[in-house]
């Protein structure tokens, strides 16, 4: 695979007026990204989600564990929106009440914080560890490469969710342990990607040049090789966030992840799974929230892949 950073960027620009400006590869990528339809949608969704998470306190009308008790208001009440003709004497409930008299809308809003944190934290940790392991394996080669990558192969041999369940069963249920489990199962993917690109970048002439100039192996690895191997990592990482959110929600659904009353979308779904027919709003909204979030990251990941692919010219 040819890497974008090492690719010559002397391609003729579309319009002659731009010929005067020197375009940095970063700006070029961003431009290409913004022109990509799926990346636009993905970015919009994620920006919105991040804003909701940041301003959850302002957006949510109630605290996430506050019970709304009023005469005539039953638990699991369906949504009540004043604009759509709901009785104005009743409090406005955009997504209805949950089984414990709590405002579902507030819980879904607060849940965005949790899901984004889970996504970024686990993927961040997995990328960090995976990159170090993959880079070490790829650069050192020999027995170190063999040892590290065989361990990664073992981890990859398990279906990721199953392995995560096994890890959580050993560590005990809880949000922190779920983060750990999801991070651990995602490491091998990043280690593989980084190793592959390190292997190809390592053979480039400029690395040989660096060697000849007397650069230390660590400097070559961290300053010359790694920055030039990042492209595939960004794509896989973005898609990985979606997987991490989905895995964590799955674990919480099974009762192994976040513990009640945490407003975690997967947990909310799991607790109300028997309400599918008699109070569908209780599973509909958390489910949709998970879907939209995962969709957002997947679209952005796809867009990034297209934008960063040197073979595709916009």
């Amino acid at each position: 695979m040819q890497e974008s950073a090492s690719a010559p960027f002397a391609a003729a620009p579309a319009r002659p007026a731009e010929q005067l400006r020197v375009q940095s590869p970063f700006v070029r990528t961003v431009r290409r990204l913004l022109r990509n339809r799926s990346a636009q949608v993905g970015l919009a969704i994620i920006t919105l989600l991040v804003l909701i998470a940041l301003f959850a306190d302002v957006i949510a009308p109630y605290a996430c564990d506050q019970q709304i008790r009023q005469s005539g208001l039953r638990r699991r009440s369906p949504p009540c929106i004043h604009l759509l003709g709901c009785d104005r004497d009743k409090p406005q409930l955009l997504m209805g009440l949950d089984s414990n008299f709590r405002d579902l809308f507030s819980r879904v809003v607060y849940g965005s914080r949790l899901s984004l944190q889970i996504g970024f934290l686990t993927t961040g940790a997995a990328i960090l560890i995976g990159t170090l392991l993959g880079a070490a394996a790829g650069y050192a080669g020999g027995w170190a490469d063999n040892a590290i990558m065989r361990i990664m192969d073992v981890l990859l041999a398990f279906p990721s969710l199953l392995l995560a369940i096994a890890i959580v069963s050993v560590l005990g249920p809880g949000l922190i342990n779920t983060l750990l489990a999801v991070a651990i199962v995602s490491i091998p993917v990043y280690a593989r990607v980084v190793r592959a690109s390190v292997l190809s970048v390592k053979e480039m002439d400029y690395i040989a040049a660096s060697h000849a100039l007397g650069a230390s192996p660590l400097r070559i690895l961290f300053v010359r090789i790694l920055p030039n191997s990042l492209t595939p990592l960004i794509v896989v990482g973005t898609l990985g966030i979606a997987t991490a959110i989905l895995d964590a929600a799955g674990l919480s659904f099974l009762g192994l992840g976040a513990q009640p009353p945490t407003p975690e979308w997967g947990l909310m779904l799991g607790e109300e799974r028997n309400s599918v027919f008699n109070a569908p709003h209780l599973v509909f909204f958390p489910g949709i929230a998970i879907m939209i979030t995962v969709l957002g990251f997947n679209l952005l990941g796809d867009g990034l892949r297209d934008a960063l692919d040197p073979r595709r010219k916009a």
Partner: peptide, 21 residues
């Protein structure tokens, strides 16, 4: 759901309950 209700009731008298399934 009942566990979370008990959690909420005890919070009213200043007891913080952690729920463990």
């Amino acid at each position: 759901i009942v566990a979370q209700e008990i959690q909420a009731q005890l919070k009213e008298v200043g007891v913080n309950v952690k729920i463990e399934v």
